[in-house]
Design a protein around this nucleic acid. Structure first.
Lengths: 182, 182
DNA sequence: CAGTATCCTGTCCGATACTG
DNA sequence: CAGTATCGGACAGGATACTG
């Protein structure tokens, strides 16, 4: 990430990454959503250098994912509590857990999503909220939305064709040259 | 990423990040899943420096997310095609899109998930595959799985209590000191 | 306990030039 | 077209020391 806030910044994935794309950010969020609040809780759980923790914590606060809340006046002490957007991020984390476990954990799951009351294991899948249809099936694609700029729209104009990128004509090359943004 | 492959490498989130945590990786995956196959397709779509693209492409191949496939013999030419694990990653991307759009796109959606045939917009949510229950509700938590090491297990031992982290006793501090791994 | 202050290394990433 | 080779800058991340 760093300074490359341009290029594709219209893409919502890029925008998300700008907030949580750093290595530690998601791990910190994971802990915050688990109930961690205070500096040293994060530090001990993550074994992260204190200066890094400060930096990531601040950037998460800046992005509106954590709220810095004073819990003591003398001495002044703060805790970091997840905001709504952080709580909204939980499903992403869950999917990442499920995906990582499935593909990169030959020894089996080290982290499970469970029903808090019954303790029953849950297995996260993504469905369309309206129809309930699972979205894993290949009959869903991406398409340019109303707020898409010309660049994005060009890439996604053919909503249905998933292998169409290869078929793109070699023209319009120069036109695209420096039209990075948008 | 980089050399910090220790610390919390048992966490499936960390493992996932190790594969797709670089800034460009997810964007490349996004394009690959859209149908991009060849070097310059990625390059034009992403406006990424060629050396970076090479690096990211190679690391994705190494991680088993892309397959490098020869499509021409003279001259030798390769294309990069998403593997099953990459296709499994699509839901994560969708959620990231949905999350990013909801929280960081005041101008509205620039990317939509649509039914490929009808063009109808889909709205991704995460549910338990067995019960169909939405997982957003706070009555799901994380718990240590069978493959969890002592460290992880300690953090997640109390499956149900979501705000319990603060209640952890101040003892067992020295014991944890250098027990980073596991 | 909750950080801040320094210093250092690795590498992500960009820009540009070059090649079969 | 599909990259490789080099160079330089910014910053993530680590280690350690210090403070109210």
């Amino acid at each position: 990430m760093q300074h490359k806030s341009f290029a594709d910044m219209q893409c919502p994935i890029a925008r998300s990454l700008e907030r949580v794309g750093e290595w530690w950010s998601m791990l910190i969020l994971r802990d915050a959503l688990r109930g961690a609040r205070r500096f040293d809780q994060f530090q001990k759980s993550l074994a992260i250098a204190p200066n890094m923790l400060t930096r990531r914590l601040n950037s998460l606060v800046e992005s509106g994912l954590l709220e810095r809340r004073r819990y003591s006046d003398r001495p002044p002490r703060y805790e970091y509590v997840p905001t709504e957007s952080a709580r909204d991020f939980r499903p992403v984390l869950w999917l990442l857990i499920s995906w990582g476990t499935k593909h990169f954990a030959p020894e089996g799951p080290s982290l499970l999503i469970v029903d808090a009351k019954t303790g029953a294991r849950a297995d996260p899948i993504v469905v369309d909220s309206a129809s309930g249809r699972p979205l894993m099936s290949p009959d869903f694609t991406l398409a340019a939305g109303p707020a898409a700029g010309a660049r994005l729209r060009r890439l996604y104009e053919a909503a249905g064709e998933s292998n169409a990128a290869a078929a793109e004509g070699p023209r319009a090359k120069a036109a695209r040259k420096k039209a990075r943004l948008n």
